[in-house]
Amino acid sequence: MNAEPRWLNPEQAQTWLALWSVFEWLPTRLEAQLKRDSGINLHDYYALAQISMAPEKTLTMTKLAASCDMSPPRGSRT
Rank of each mutant, 00 (worst) to 15 (best):
E31Y: 01
Q12D: 07
P5I: 08
A32Q: 14
D44L: 08
N41S: 13
E24T: 14
A65F: 08
D37W: 08
L59V: 12
L26A: 10
A66P: 01
S38R: 10
L48Y: 01
S76D: 03
L17R: 12
W20T: 09
L64I: 11
A47M: 11
E56R: 14
D69S: 11
D44E: 05
V22G: 10
H43A: 09
S67D: 14
L17I: 10
M1W: 09
A54H: 15
L8N: 12
T28L: 15
R77A: 11
T60D: 15
V22E: 04
D69V: 09
R36I: 00
Q50F: 00
G39E: 04
A65M: 05
S76K: 13
L64Y: 02
M70R: 10
W7S: 09
Y46P: 00
A65K: 03
A65G: 07
L59N: 04
L59I: 11
E4Q: 09
E31H: 06
A49P: 00
D37T: 04
E11M: 10
L48W: 00
S21A: 10
V22W: 11
K63C: 15
T58N: 13
L59G: 06
A65E: 04
L19Y: 08
S21V: 02
P72R: 03
A18I: 11
P27K: 09
Q14S: 04
V22F: 05
L30M: 10
A54K: 06
A47G: 08
S52H: 11
P5E: 09
A47V: 12
E31D: 08
C68A: 12
S38L: 04
W7M: 14
T60R: 05
D69Q: 12
E31V: 00
L26D: 01
T78W: 01
Q14G: 02
A65H: 04
W7V: 07
H43K: 04
R74N: 05
F23R: 11
I40P: 02
A49V: 14
S38K: 04
E11K: 09
L26M: 06
W20D: 08
Q50C: 11
A13H: 03
E31P: 00
S67T: 15
S52W: 11
T78I: 02
E11N: 06
D44A: 07
Y45N: 05
N9E: 12
E4N: 02
A54P: 08
L42Q: 10
E31Q: 12
Q50R: 12
S76R: 12
G39L: 11
T78D: 02
L19A: 13
H43D: 04
Q33R: 06
L26T: 10
L19M: 14
I40H: 04
T58W: 13
T15N: 13
R36C: 01
Y45E: 13
A32D: 03
